[in-house]
Design a protein around this nucleic acid. Structure first.
Lengths: 232, 232
DNA sequence: CGGGGACTTGACGGCCTTCAATGAGAGTGG
DNA sequence: CCACTCTCATTGAAGGCCGTCAAGTCCCCG
């Protein structure tokens, strides 16, 4: 008996495609690993040595230019899949934003296992297709939207994704108040802006009564409709 | 006997995963369709009714805001796969940039067929994973790069992708001269810029001897190293 | 209470957009 | 063959949004 039996994402991660015999076999080639905020699991450009499922926490996928500019290209939550199966190189770094627990596999072990279990590959395909849609949708934000539109779109996106099981929300106003797993700089890195612009847009929305900022990391949406209008 | 037997992308598209018996079955549920430049195959937000393989030509994937701003989120070439299998909605429009031929399937027919042919799903998974990597890489361009860096990165990307089989290149300088399948406006829509900025950056590169512009749609790279430096 | 990092706020400048006019090519018909 | 037209591309001028640089403020944590 292994970790999988009492895994909180057992029925939501790609593992849900497997029966109890199969999951034991998968369990045998995986191991759990804990990460602290700021700790990386994969580095851009390195060989693709491992893949993983997110069990707990939030992680960022990022790339950067040679002169230090950074862009966050994805954010993963519990039950999401990490890494590049069937490929030699990792195209982006993966770094924990919060305390996180992941279920790690050697990439080659996982590749072999997946090839023998089409149902698992099917789940992974569905996830990858959804992620591709989501990523392309975000290109519209980066390519065509103003700073205020970006912030509004970002807050709406966060409010939707942080209510999924496994992510903390305050008890009283479940969909309206949430804690960002990002610093201001990281928000800037998601949106392709500077930290100062992000800060100014946050305070502007607060001043105009669209949101409230109870603490550094937390946000309350006071007027969702208005925020949706501003998202463009 | 059907179209597949003499299909020019038979060995490069996801169909390469199938043996001759299987390909006959796939052939039975597909049909060919020709598209003219500007003609769309799928529309953003519509039900996902069909998927396709590109046989010939170049097509764009695009989305836009309600007030008419457009962003091209992907470009597909011969042997690439189009559409959203296993999903209800199409997240972006698909429009031909050149004369194009595609091999079309009903989405539900394709879904059933794919589920019965793991090797096909595996090919599709590999393609989708590569496309996701490529798309995320492009987010760095949209989020963090200046106009001149974007143009340089774009020209280098084009020079690499347009030499693939099925795309026309001039005989004398295979990798250095190529015809863009884009108008200036479409280049702007790929890069998240305006047509004027694109035009100015093109003429700047020409003036400084990095590229030449023999005609409206064609580009010659005179100094690739310099272009790589400018891509950031 | 005091240090240090994260965040905010302000002033200024530059890059890109916007608006507008000119120029170049391709196709058409006289 | 050449005016004519229409579209696409180029070029110019001006303005605005956001980045940069620099203080100042707020918290968190020791």
């Amino acid at each position: 008996m292994g970790f999988c039996d009492n895994c909180v994402v057992r029925n939501r991660a790609i593992c849900a495609a497997l029966d109890s015999t199969e999951i034991q076999a998968l369990n045998a080639i995986g191991r759990r690993r804990k990460l602290e905020p700021g700790q990386s699991l994969l580095w851009e450009g390195e060989d693709s040595v491992l893949v993983a499922n997110v069990i707990e926490g939030v992680l960022k996928l990022s790339t950067g230019t040679s002169d230090g500019r950074e862009q966050i290209v994805g954010v993963v939550y519990p039950s999401d899949f990490i890494g590049r199966p069937f490929g030699k190189q990792t195209a982006h770094s993966v770094t924990a934003l919060t305390d996180a627990t992941v279920c790690v596999f050697s990439r080659t072990d996982f590749d072999s296992f997946a090839r023998e279990h089409p149902a698992l590959e099917h789940k992974l395909l569905q996830r990858t297709l959804s992620e591709l849609d989501r990523t392309r949708q975000w290109m519209l934000v980066l390519g065509r939207k103003s700073a205020s539109e970006r912030i509004a779109a970002f807050l709406l996106d966060m409010s939707e994704r942080l209510v999924e099981p496994g992510c903390v929300t305050l008890p009283d106003e479940p969909h309206q108040t949430f804690d960002l797993p990002f610093s201001r700089q990281q928000v800037a890195d998601v949106l392709g802006l500077t930290i100062e612009t992000v800060s100014r847009q946050f305070t502007k929305l607060k001043t105009e009564g669209v949101i409230d900022l109870p603490s550094r990391r937390s946000v309350t949406i006071l007027n969702r409709e208005e925020l949706e209008d501003r998202a463009g």
